[in-house]
Design a binder for these strands. Sequence first.
DNA 1: CATTTTCGAAGACTATAGTCCGTAGACTAT
DNA 2: ATAGTCTACGGACTATAGTCTTCGAAAATG
Lengths: 74, 74
Amino acid sequence: MSIEVIFGKVLRNIREDKKFSQEQLAHLSELDRTYISLLERGKRRPTINTLFALCKPLGLKPSEFLGEIEKELY
Amino acid sequence: MSIEVIFGKVLRNIREDKKFSQEQLAHLSELDRTYISLLERGKRRPTINTLFALCKPLGLKPSEFLGEIEKELY
DNA sequence: CATTTTCGAAGACTATAGTCCGTAGACTAT
DNA sequence: ATAGTCTACGGACTATAGTCTTCGAAAATG
């Protein structure tokens, strides 16, 4: 499975754990609502800056986020 | 200091540790040589896919790479 | 010294990240 | 039913990631 699809699954899992809607996360990370949707469906490849922006309101380190992706990546 | 500038410093440090030229790293990661140069000078914000591509020949996990950035960021 | 390797930088380009507008469907509650 | 919330998805954008070519200037290397 591709990196961006795994990224989307991880993002959705974490967001739902934190009880955020896509729109709430979009506002908190200063990104667009429709873009969060695209990310979760594996349709975009975020830059590292976007990853950092997402991780801040989710309350975890970007390195931890990537760790979750690495677990799924074989 | 911005994420992309720190990213560039970390990338250069790791690349020089591994005794790679920009051109060698470019070939191994299937990226353009001038783009490696742009990254190291903090002029570009790589996607997570590009980060994974760079980490493979450098022999470290993307999460470890981001860990290095986080050290400098706080 | 002279030669080679390495890198910075610019310009023109293509691909895609990310925004902004909307609509429609599923679900929940009133 | 209907009003509110949430999300998928579309189209049309703008901004920027990433490529390709070239040149010249540092640094090595001998």
